[in-house]
């Protein structure tokens, strides 16, 4: 699928969140300000401040268990900060009710580490799930859905059930599902964690392509090879979690 085709497919499904929610100045999409997160009495993350501005590309790295997934969950409201403030499109996520949270999540595409599919639905319906839950009529979206599936190379697997897919196919399908609503931000949690080098490069290219279309990308990964491969193609900021704090990584990456 060409980038033009992808652009067309993605722009046909604007998220239903109000664009007016954006802050008047700066247009920072996701903003964490002195955020801390504690669980079971222990601090997992502390004093985290980071901004995701439109069109930016970020890597979030750190050792296993350092809190990368936790930080991503704080960004899309799956967890609530114990301290500080998380703002999404200018709104304090803590103040959102469940309906508002749903609308917020339609503006964010998330690629989960374990992909999270509905195993009883065919792949095409899983990819189209964000459209379905937001009330879009799928019968008029078949062409766009086809283009998106072609973009991730899964056209022939449209009718397969998620348990029948390989790790790479699941990751690509998760990416397709994450972008089908043409979100402003894509958060990917270890998107290459279960795939070989070739597939990880392919997934990286898809994410870079999205970034070139203006999407904000944040990838949590411990794969330094992936980060090096990306830095040669895109201007990426690398954030590292170390000792529960977030640091800007050095030039060694």
């Amino acid at each position: 699928m060409s980038p033009i085709g992808l652009r067309r497919a993605l722009k046909l499904h604007p998220p239903s969140g109000k664009k007016g929610d954006e802050p008047a100045g700066g247009r920072i999409l996701i903003e964490l300000e002195n955020v801390g997160y504690s669980y079971g009495g222990g601090e997992l993350l502390g004093d985290i401040s980071v901004d995701l501005s439109p069109g930016s590309f970020h890597f979030l790295t750190g050792p296993s268990g350092s809190g990368k997934t936790t930080l991503l969950k704080l960004c899309y409201g799956a967890l609530q900060a114990s301290a500080g403030q998380v703002r999404g499109f200018g709104q304090d996520l803590r103040r959102l009710d469940r309906d508002q949270m749903a609308l917020f999540r339609r503006r964010i595409g998330v690629v989960h580490q374990d992909c999270r599919f509905l195993d009883h639905l065919p792949l095409a319906e899983n990819i189209a799930l964000p459209l379905t839950v937001s009330g879009h009529d799928l019968s008029g979206q078949q062409e766009n859905l086809g283009e998106l599936m072609a973009w991730v190379g899964l056209t022939k697997r449209a009718d397969a059930l998620p348990p029948e897919l390989s790790g790479g196919e699941r990751q690509r399908a998760a990416l397709a599902r994450a972008v089908i609503m043409s979100p402003d931000v894509v958060l990917a949690d270890e998107p290459t964690g279960n795939v070989d080098w070739e597939m990880s490069q392919r997934l990286l290219q898809l994410l870079i392509e999205l970034n070139r279309m203006g999407k904000t990308i944040l990838i949590a990964t411990h794969d330094l090879g992936l980060i090096r491969a990306a830095k040669s193609q895109v201007q990426a900021r690398v954030l590292r979690i170390s000792n529960r704090r977030l640091q800007l990584a050095g030039a060694d990456l």
């Binding site: 998220p15 899309y76 799956a78 469940r98 309906d99 949270m101 749903a102 609308l103 999540r105 339609r106 998330v110 989960h112 999270r116 599919f117 509905l118 799930l129 964000p130 839950v133 937001s134 009330g135 599902r177 609503m181």
Partner: peptide, 15 residues
């Protein structure tokens, strides 16, 4: 689990 997935992709509770 299904409910969790639906919420993550933006489903409202009434849906």
């Amino acid at each position: 689990q299904v409910i969790e997935v639906l919420r993550l992709v933006g489903a409202r509770d009434r849906y």
